[in-house]
Design a protein around this nucleic acid. Structure first.
Lengths: 200, 200
DNA sequence: GTCTATACTTCGATAGAC
DNA sequence: GTCTATCGAAGTATAGAC
């Protein structure tokens, strides 16, 4: 049987040096975009030799996946805590409207289009996040007395997600016409629903 | 006075060769993402020497701007034609739901984050497109008998834009849970509004 | 007005030293 | 288990020939 072409050795996953490289990659990704995340620049940012990137990660794609995974897990945990503390419509909206992570999304969606490993990881996270929010929103809408026929939780969730994402994205471009008006409208709606429970 | 540092000569804007380079760049952008749009690869795709890219464009960023501008103008013209022919809610929705261009958006938003010239061009287009749609949607909602207090046109437009964008984006990831349900819901709503004009 | 020869930088990756 | 010396390929851009 044709043995594998001698895989090169990869550093331990719990290495301190490895964590520093992931930190550096994350910073570069946020500040300058994924095109700036090269082994040389990551090494320089971490104060380490660039070759170490290739020692700890089989490829640059692997490094991207690791950066994403770390942030995604943290984000899921934070959202879970917030929803456990309070599952009101207001809380769910605020979690969605939080612009942190919007810059990340832009970079990782672009990466996902052409890197299968990144795409798989982003998709996995998107599904978990969606399911978590859907559970909370279903309950919150029911408690607010909104009938599922009038506003199916999944439809409401996609509308909310889309709205916050498009506004975060336009913020980057400096296009903010209508944002304030829309935020006021949505928050009024939520106040009415959250306040007047079982009122319709 | 310190004269400019000798700008190098740039090819004519109406050159046939130049158009071929823009075509090649557009193809590469769609197929493999903006990271694949390098002078070498654009040249190869066009069947030309890579140096020609630098003859016709002062920088790679200029090439990106040109690719974007060409598509954006075409898209604006197409939308304008569609809205002139029919300004119903259904038409406006269908224009938005058209997934063509979604792949482009992902690439150019990522580029815009770190290339000022691209950002300015994308923002300019976004504003024009938004204004064009807002005019049409305001009229369509009024004709359907929807009061601006119940559904302000700007709010409705941002919701619609966000919804179609987030679905197009998730399509790329292979995450389509809830999409069908949401499409049916929206289309039912539109049918009711477009059909029962002045019904409320 | 058009194109090419060439310079110089940076890239990802690996083989082998400690 | 950790790190470095080094490679070949690919990147942008310009000066100068036609």
């Amino acid at each position: 049987m044709p043995s594998e072409p001698a895989p090169r050795r990869i550093g331990a996953a719990d290495s301190k040096t490895r964590a520093r490289l992931v930190d550096a990659a994350e910073q570069l990704l946020l500040e300058e975009g994924h095109a700036a995340v090269t082994s040389r620049r990551v090494g320089a940012r971490a104060g380490l030799k660039p070759q170490l990137v290739h020692y700890y990660f089989r490829s640059m794609e692997d490094l991207f996946v690791e950066v994403f995974r770390r942030r995604a897990e943290e984000s899921l945990a934070r959202t879970d805590r917030a929803l456990t503390a309070s599952a009101s419509l207001r809380t769910i909206w605020e979690i969605n409207a939080d612009p942190r992570g919007a810059a990340f999304n832009v970079e990782f969606v672009a990466l996902a289009k052409h890197h299968p490993a990144v795409r798989a990881e982003v998709a996995r996270y998107a599904r978990r996040y969606r399911a978590m929010q859907l559970r909370a929103l279903s309950r919150a809408l029911a408690e607010a007395g909104v009938a599922p026929e009038d506003a199916p939780p999944m439809v409401a969730l996609l509308l909310m997600t889309g709205l916050t994402q498009v506004m975060a994205l336009e913020q980057v471009l400096g296009v903010t016409a209508g944002h304030e008006e829309t935020l006021v409208f949505v928050q009024d709606l939520i106040d009415r629903l959250d306040g007047g429970r079982r009122a319709g």
